[in-house]
Simulated assay, not measured.
Amino acid sequence: MSLTPETQEAPFRAGTVAVLGRPNVGKSTLVNALVGAKVSIVSPRPQTTRHRLLGIATFPAGQLLLVDTPGIHREQKRAMNRMMNRAARGAVEGVDAAALVIEAGRWTEEDGLAYAALHSAGVPVVLVVNKVDKLADKTALLPFIAQITHEREFASVHPVSAMKSKGLDALVKDLLFLMPESPPHYGEDEITDRSERFLAGELVREQLMLRLGEELPYSTTVEIEKFEEDGELLRIAAVVWVEREGQKPIVIGKGGERLKAISTSARIGMEKLFGRKVFLETWCRVREGWSDDEAALRRFGYSD
């Protein structure tokens, strides 16, 4: 017996969503929450995300390919900043929709730059007002949304807390509605297009962002020199690169304690993500001015 129109299941939908916004509005936290696993590193510091990364979120009704991007920012002092901005702007090419992530109660010039990049791309834009749980005066939320949406075009608006996974069901429903009818692009157990080798480097860099002082994390990057399977064990060797000789002892710490703590926390994160034991070795080396050197950036895996 054929199904009547009233009892037919809705068609499966799948497509790509660019997740844009200024630095530190919670784009990576949102992507992780939607995927249900940690595919993007997070820290309280702006510009933690340096690479374009695909998070794969699969639901009964469809699949969202979420393109997590570096935050769009005004200052472009170094080659790395310029490359990050190009990566973020280029993420809107060929997508089915976009999510503009902003912080509840705050709109800046950089938010405007992100909106302009999406508006000019001509794709449907969903406004995600994040961190509503941190808004001291909850009565200010609706007037704030009214102000932001005045003379700006959005397919829908969603106040959410990505950190607490609040408001995400409605967001997913509206994003899936904007996707084309399509079978899934990835298996339901796949969560990212990036390799475990890449994710290992990011987990080390996350600890650098969390454990070093104000400026030093921005002068560091991580290169995975070895990633080998030894039975059930993963053997990984990571190099933390800094830009000046004087930065090296700061990363290493007294008696090597800081680098040891960074390695321990990164290893625990890897074992949780990869589901297996990890043996991690780390070193710190100097590459003068790497963040303003296009050749060095490409060697370390940066791309626009």
Results as ranks from 00 to 15, higher is better:
residue 212 L to C: 04
residue 91 A to G: 00
residue 284 C to I: 03
residue 118 L to W: 07
residue 145 I to W: 04
residue 81 N to V: 08
residue 251 V to G: 11
residue 83 M to C: 08
residue 46 P to F: 03
residue 252 I to S: 14
residue 232 E to M: 11
residue 138 K to F: 01
residue 30 L to F: 12
residue 143 P to H: 05
residue 82 R to H: 01
residue 127 L to N: 02
residue 70 P to E: 12
residue 290 W to P: 04
residue 91 A to W: 00
residue 6 E to F: 08
residue 246 G to E: 15
residue 192 T to S: 15
residue 142 L to K: 08
residue 139 T to I: 03
residue 73 H to V: 02
residue 82 R to K: 13
residue 231 G to P: 09
residue 29 T to C: 14
residue 14 A to G: 14
residue 281 E to N: 06
residue 199 L to H: 13
residue 253 G to F: 08
residue 302 Y to L: 13
residue 93 E to A: 14
residue 285 R to I: 00
residue 52 R to Q: 15
residue 105 G to N: 04
residue 155 A to K: 04
residue 244 R to I: 05
residue 203 L to T: 00
residue 30 L to N: 09
residue 115 Y to K: 04
residue 115 Y to P: 08
residue 242 V to K: 09
residue 257 E to A: 15
residue 139 T to K: 13
residue 64 L to D: 00
residue 156 S to N: 02
residue 255 G to Q: 02
residue 212 L to N: 09
residue 63 Q to F: 01
residue 10 A to L: 14
residue 242 V to W: 04
residue 131 K to Q: 08
residue 128 V to F: 08
residue 220 T to H: 14
residue 3 L to G: 13
residue 175 L to A: 04
residue 288 E to V: 11
residue 277 K to H: 11
residue 299 R to C: 09
residue 182 S to A: 15
residue 239 V to H: 11
residue 47 Q to S: 03
residue 282 T to K: 07
residue 249 P to K: 00
residue 208 L to A: 07
residue 301 G to A: 15
residue 13 R to F: 09
residue 71 G to D: 05
residue 221 T to C: 14
residue 166 K to H: 13
residue 217 P to E: 01
residue 224 I to W: 02
residue 20 L to N: 05
residue 150 H to D: 12
residue 67 V to L: 15
residue 184 P to K: 05
residue 1 M to T: 12
residue 145 I to Q: 06
residue 292 D to W: 14
residue 26 G to T: 06
residue 217 P to V: 01
residue 224 I to E: 04
residue 189 D to Y: 05
residue 173 K to R: 08
residue 165 S to E: 12
residue 112 G to S: 08
residue 232 E to C: 03
residue 127 L to M: 03
residue 4 T to Y: 08
residue 245 E to H: 01
residue 110 E to Y: 01
residue 201 G to E: 00
residue 48 T to Y: 05
residue 57 A to C: 06
residue 101 V to I: 14
residue 153 E to L: 14
residue 33 A to W: 13
residue 234 L to H: 03
residue 155 A to Q: 04
residue 211 R to Y: 11
residue 37 A to M: 03
residue 79 A to T: 09
residue 287 R to K: 15
residue 189 D to F: 05
residue 202 E to M: 02
residue 73 H to Q: 11
residue 23 P to A: 06
residue 246 G to A: 14
residue 96 D to A: 08
residue 76 Q to Y: 05
residue 212 L to G: 02
residue 238 A to G: 10
residue 38 K to V: 09
residue 25 V to G: 06
residue 210 L to A: 06
residue 22 R to I: 10
residue 85 N to E: 07
residue 141 L to V: 07
residue 226 K to V: 11
residue 16 T to S: 12
residue 255 G to E: 06
residue 195 S to P: 10
residue 25 V to F: 02
residue 23 P to D: 04
residue 86 R to I: 11
residue 219 S to A: 10
residue 262 I to V: 15
residue 203 L to V: 06
